[in-house]
Every structure is written in C-alpha cells, then in structure tokens.
Amino acid sequence: MDNPKSDPVVITNLSTLESFLSESANFRNVSYISPIPEVCKEYPCILGIDEAGRGPVLGPMVYGTAFIPINDQMLLEVLECADSKALNEEKRDTIFGNICEKSSKMGWAVEVIAPNSICNSMLGRSKYSLNQVSMDSAIGLIRAALDNGVKVQHVYVDTVGKPEKYQEYLKSLFPNLDIVVAKKADSTYPIVSAASICAKVTRDHSLKVWDFVEGIDVKEFGSGYPGDPVTKRFLVDNCDPVFGYPQLVRFSWSTAANALENHAYHVEFEEADEDNNTPQQTSMSITSFFKMTSSKTKEKTMHEFFTQRCLSRKVEL
C-alpha cells in the first residue's frame, strides 16, 4: 500500500481521479487513500470492502473501501449508496463525486491491481490464485485504514467465494474487529455499496485514460466481458503474433488464451514439474541384473562439470 509519489495527490472529483490514474504506471499496482476525516479517527467507524472488474478479460481489478463513523452512517442513504450494479455509470460517477465532497465525514481508498500483475500471479511458478490476490488486497485496505488512524470497529466485506472460511481468516488477522463477510454485501450494506462505487468508478476511469505502453491507439475495447462484441473485435484486431496482446489484456483468462491459439505463434513454455532436473536413467529394470551378456566396457562419460553446463564435444580432435 505504499504510494511512490512524493507529494500526496488528493482526489477530489472525477477529473483529479483521472489525472491520478493517468499519471500512474498502468502496469503496476497503484494504491490511493483519501485524507482521513478527523471524525473517523475519533469515533468508531464502519468500513466496507468490495471489488470491481474481477471477471473481465481486460483492465485492472480494483479493490475499494469506504469508511464512516457509525453515528454518521445515515449520510450513506442521503448519498444514495445502493447496489452499484443496479446503478448506471453516470449515477455512479455522480455519487462518487458526492462521496469526495463529504471528505469531512467519510473516507475511501482503492487498490488498482494491474492486469499484468494478475497474470503474473496466476502464471507464476507457484500459483497465486485470484482469490488469494483478492483477499490480500482486502487485507491491505483494512491495514491501510488502520495505519492511517481510522478507528475501525465493524468491517463488511463482499465475497464471491465461501464467506465462512474467508471471514474466519480475516478474524484471525484482525481479532479486535467485528468482521462480516457476506455474498452480495453491496446490496445489503450501504457502506459496501459506497466501497463498490469507489472501486467501479476507479476501474471505469482507469480504462478511460488507459494509455497503451505498446503505442496502440485504440480507445474502444468494450466492457471486457467475453460476450461483448467490442471486446471481441479488440482481441482480434490487436493481436501481435509474437507478443500476443498489450498488457491491458489478462493473458491468464481462457478467452485470451484461446484467441492466442488461433491468432498468434505457438509458444512452448517450460512446465512447472520439469524443473527439478532429475538425473536420467538412474532406474534400472530388475531383470537387467540377470542378463547373460557381460556389460560392455563403460562408455567414457564426461565429467559433471561439462554435463551440468550442457557442454558436449562437437568436434573430434
């Protein structure tokens, strides 16, 4: 959760959000936390967590949190924080702007997890699943709030997996907090809706200002869901036969992987198991001991120094 920028940027509306996003490298994870209102340091708070952009084949996944003193939570109703999926983009943008304006009452934070960082986690040597990435991001947000002095008391987390195990895990990490992990928490708890809106708006705008490192000049790539014709078109039109896709795309998604099978050169990757170079032919069949023919004089083998370095003699002197 460290922000590499020297002077802290403050996001106060959509345009400062956009400039924050466009100034950050889009191939690295980026975090932001709003200034903490004094009331959030003084009075016990509720804190909600939700994510946006888990499913799509392109763009970042954004984890968001919002927090407000328990006694002020009526404000969330006034701000019309409801299930973010039931709101349209325009409405979400408006509510986000209003959340920013209430900076004396409530705060928020996001972590933008770069698409390439998701791929690298999923395609690494030791698998780091999307669920684990998600949990760690949520944990990071709770920590950031605590580290910045928010008096967190109740935590509400939206989950896609099994809530019980996740809840237990979070409770083991934060024994002093009351933690509720629930499915569809964003439609049940207004504070989770607020978090969800922050996450969704951040994701949408991060795509809006997406600047391709690869120098591709494309502004339309659709929602990123496999069924979206604009996304389909994008994946067909912007495939490099060697590198595949720009790093906006999540290579680890089957949609992308399947498309590459058809449109790009085949690449053989190292298999994870192949890694330990077990010495070959160490096992002999038991019957070999009973062979009548005396074994031939052992062929002259090269010293390990050479075999370990894949060196062999190519020219007879």
Binding site: E214, G215, D240, V242, F243, P246, Y265, V267
Partner: peptide
C-alpha cells in the same frame, strides 16, 4: 527467453517488451 516461440520473424520488442 525461457521458452520457444515457433516463429522466425521480426517482433516489436521495443514496444511490447522493453518498456516493461
């Protein structure tokens, strides 16, 4: 690179690889 690309051609290394 630790993999085999089944191709023998030019590739946009300076835009798709080096910046990262």
């Amino acid at each position: 690179v630790p993999f085999r690309i089944h191709a023998d051609c030019d590739a946009p290394v300076s835009t798709f690889f080096e910046p990262y």
